[in-house]
Each structure stands twice: as structure tokens, then as C-alpha cells.
Design a protein around this nucleic acid. Structure first.
Length: 419
RNA sequence: GUGAGUAUAGCUCAGUUGGUUAGAGCACCAGGUUGUGGCCCUGGGGGUCAAGGGUUCAAAUCCCUUUACUCACCCCA
């Protein structure tokens, strides 16, 4: 049997209503803030990602789906959206048409990791990006939007964490200070952490090992060493978040993995989804556009994992399936009324009434069971005695009441069913 | 890439220290007097017990290999 590729999932009809609900919430809230949807291709030139996300990151180093097409161009399935959005922004000179572009997206992403709870190889994200302003209003606004969406989906067990990474020069400076602090404690660190000393020293703070945490307890913190402007901006983000009534906590250990982040970084975590607890991650990337060959353009954005959010919703018991309903089920009492059935169904459907009927030549009882299973609001019986005199019975499935209608009073039936 | 666990019907799971034709609930299908659902009742279909090998008179059950899935590490949404 051919099965779906490891780490990919079919979204079946039985669960699609939750996706619709989430997507509609996302679209509604973003449009309330005047963000416009952008769609970019699922694949891009590999160079785009290695340049923006960073050669040293795990995403670029070992998680990308990369292949050559027939013209020997190296292609990569997008592992995240920001790079593609900024590429499109530059390519179409969006910044020259208006100074600020507020964009959002909903899209599949691809990363070749070992699947586990809340982690897939093809997964889906929605997110927002604001390009063209260094105002912290936007940092706060995007955090607010993400928070609003999660709250609107009924999530309660979520925490907003924020931090600032400063600008690259102050960050490099801090890294040296941290290295000095750790110099004589190196051999006490775990093996994993020692590796990170060279690869990504900031990540040390993520260590789940107690002895590492002990060593880091008195370590200098990045937030104390970032440049003055970044500090001031960070204070502003906090102030705006307060004004917007978003509860948050500052987390000096919050380091985001992608190279392009500057200043604000943030995460929204859930206590209900297992080990992969980050529902939302984002931050500011003031240098990215320039790095990708565009005019210098400040930007800020976030990405949210849809599967993780749906998992959180499930575990918090929110987003309960509302019953799928159909307006009308037509039961055929005689076998040979197919053409009349088709006419009738078409006329109702053109009045925006959803109609289904039996395709399997089943008994009236079986048709009724089907109507009930489909949650049909009304059943119309086509055929039999009353049909000879040009009328049909219309049954209200909730009350069980049944009423005879002349077929020429079609609009009467429409009126009743449409209520 | 590393580690642990799991694999029996479409789904959720029973299956005793190895012992006849492998079970239940749900789902599905058909009936329960002419042309009417839900509840209930009766019946039915559906399994290479993940695959391959081994031990044994006898394997879903014990052993080995492989595969898949799950969770965790790493990292991230």
C-alpha cells in the first residue's frame, strides 16, 4: 500500500471544519488590522533561504528539502515564509508604492525533521509581516494580533514571552563577554552545551540540564548589554503591550534561531501541546531586506504553527465541531423519477439551498436514515400517490411535521427551507 | 542523527502460563409488513494478528531481523 510520506498528514473531511474556523479567524483579525494577504510559491531558489535564515542554522544545515530541477537550479521547499515575503517585497518594489506594507499569509512549510507531537515535515503556518517601519507599535501590534487569534480560538493556557536581541554589533560584544564568563566553567558543562559554545552560544540558555542551568544562573544577560536604542525600543514594546492589555513576561533566555532577527523577539507558548510548546515565534528583522539586495527596510513579523494550535485547541477542549448540516434531502419514492429529481435538486440548489439525495438505489428507510445522518433539516418525498396530482410532502426533520405542497408552489417551499 | 516504546477489523481496544473456526464496542450494510429518520431489536460483511525468518506437536502470544508509527533529545512553528 502506498502511504503518505513520513511526517505528512492528510486533512480529512471530518476535521476540515476546524481548519476553516481557524483560517477564517486569521483572515478576519488580520483584516481588522488592515493586513493584506500575500501568497508566494512553495519553492524558491535555495540561495534565498541560506542567505536569510543563515548557513549555520539547523534549518539550512540539515532540514531543508532541496533538489535540482531540470535546469540544474537548486530549489528548496520553503521552510519558513519571511524570506519569500521579503523577496517578493523587493522584487515587486512594494516599498516604493507605499511606505508601509502590512502583510499576512497562510501556507504550508517543509522541514525534514524527525516527526513528533506538534512537529511535521509538511506543516502549516499563518503569520504576519510589517515592512517599512521601525516603530515598536508594529512589534506590539503583531504580538497583539497573534495573541488575539489564539484567544479567539478559545485558548487560555498561553504565555507571551518577549526579549530583545539588540543589534548585531552589541550582540557580538555580549557573546564575547559570555565566552569569558564561561571560560573557566567549560568542563563542567554538558556535552551538548559544550558543542553550542562554538555553534550557537546564545542557545546555552535553552539547556534543559540542571547542572547547566546552575552554571548559567549568574551569567551575564544579553538584555543588559544591548545598545541603548534597542533598550529604549524594548521598553516601548513593553509599554505598548501594556496599553493593549497583552499579558507578557520578559525572558532573557529567549533566543530565536534564525540569523536575521534584531531587537524584539517573542514567542507564545502553550502548556498543553507536549514538548514542542511554541505556538508562535517571531521578531524584528531590520537588516534582512538589505541583506537580500533590497533597499534598507525595517521589518517585523511572526509565524504561528497551525497544527500546534489545533492540538492545543483539542487538548483545551475548545473549537468543538459544530454539526455539519444540509438543508434538504430528497427521498425518492419511485425508482423512475430521476429526471424529475435532477430538476428539483437543481432548482433548490440555485436558490442557495444545499441538497443531497440517494445515488445507490436504496430503500426509503435507508434514504431516511441517510437524511438523518446528514443532519438534513428537511426531507422532500418525491413520488407516490400525491405526486400523481402534482404535489410532494415536505418534512421538517426536527419537529417531524410534514406538509403537502403543490410542485408549482416551489417558491413557498424555498421560503420555508430558507428560514 | 540519537534514545525509548508500540504494531490484532475502517476506528478504539480485549485476547489468561503458547492450545480448536481470533473477539467486543463504535462505524458500515440489510431487515424489524405496502411510502418515513433518530431510540431499540435481529442478522450480515469485513483480519495474511505489520512483514520475513526461527523455536515448538502447536505461535496473535516466545526469539531474531526488517519496516512503519508514536514519544522524547537536538532544533523549531
Amino acid at each position: 500500500m502506498i502511504k503518505a510520506i513520513t511526517g505528512t498528514k492528510d486533512i480529512l473531511p471530518s476535521e476540515i471544519s476546524k481548519w476553516y474556523l481557524l483560517e477564517n479567524t486569521v483572515k478576519n483579525i488580520f483584516s481588522n488590522y488592515n493586513y493584506k494577504e500575500i501568497r508566494t510559491p512553495v519553492f524558491e531558489e535555495t540561495l534565498l533561504f541560506s542567505r536569510s535564515i543563515g548557513e549555520g542554522t539547523d534549518i539550512v544545515g540539515k532540514e531543508m528539502y532541496t533538489f535540482s530541477d531540470r535546469s540544474e537550479t537548486s530549489i528548496t521547499l520553503k521552510p519558513e515564509m519571511t524570506a519569500g515575503v521579503v523577496r517578493a517585497f523587493i522584487e515587486h518594489s512594494l516599498g516604493k508604492q507605499q511606505p508601509l506594507n502590512k502583510l499576512f499569509y497562510i501556507s504550508p512549510m517543509f522541514r525534514q525533521e524527525r516527526p513528533q507531537a506538534g512537529r511535521l515535515r509538511q506543516f502549516h503556518q499563518f503569520g504576519g509581516e510589517a515592512l517599512g517601519s521601525s516603530s515598536m507599535l508594529l512589534d506590539a501590534e503583531l504580538i497583539h494580533i497573534a495573541y488575539e487569534i489564539l484567544r479567539n480560538l478559545g485558548l487560555k493556557d498561553v504565555r507571551v514571552k518577549i526579549n530583545s536581541l539588540g543589534v548585531p554589533s552589541s550582540r557580538e560584544n555580549y557573546k564575547n563577554i559570555l565566552r569569558k564568563y564561561l571560560a573557566d566553567k567549560k568542563n563542567k558543562l554538558s556535552e551538548e552545551s559544550r558543542k553550542r559554545l562554538d555553534s550557537n552560544i546564545l542557545r546555552l540558555f535553552d539547556s534543559k540540564i540542571e547542572s547547566d542551568q546552575e552554571i548559567l544562573r549568574n551569567a551575564p544577560l544579553l538584555i543588559d548589554y544591548i545598545d541603548d536604542e534597542s533598550k529604549k525600543d524594548f521598553e516601548q514594546v513593553k509599554e505598548f503591550l501594556g496599553k493593549l492589555n497583552v499579558p507578557f513576561e520578559t525572558d532573557p533566555a529567549l533566543v530565536r534561531g534564525l540569523d536575521y532577527y534584531t531587537k524584539t523577539t517573542f514567542e507564545i507558548v502553550s502548556g498543553k501541546v507536549g514538548s514542542q510548546s511554541a505556538l508562535v515565534g517571531g521578531g524584528r528583522y531590520d537588516l534582512l531586506a538589505e541583506q537580500l539586495g533590497g533597499d534598507p527596510t525595517p521589518g517585523v513579523g511572526f509565524a504561528a504553527g497551525i497544527e500546534r494550535i489545533l492540538l492545543a485547541c483539542e487538548n483545551e477542549g475548545t473549537l468543538n465541531q459544530h454539526d455539519e448540516k444540509i438543508d434538504l434531502y430528497i427521498v425518492k419514492l419511485d425508482k423512475d423519477l430521476t429526471s424529475e429529481l435532477l430538476d428539483l435538486a437543481l432548482n433548490f440548489r440555485r436558490k442557495n439551498i444545499s441538497v443531497d439525495f440517494d445515488y445507490l438505489n436504496r430503500s426509503v428507510k435507508a434514504q431516511m436514515r441517510e437524511a438523518n445522518k446528514l443532519n438534513a433539516r428537511y426531507v422532500l418525498f418525491l413520488g407516490g400517490e400525491e405526486y400523481k396530482s402534482g404535489s410532494v410532502n415536505l418534512k421538517n426533520m426536527k419537529t417531524g411535521d410534514q406538509k403537502l405542497f403543490a410542485l408549482k408552489d416551489f417558491s413557498e417551499m424555498v421560503k420555508i427551507i430558507s428560514q
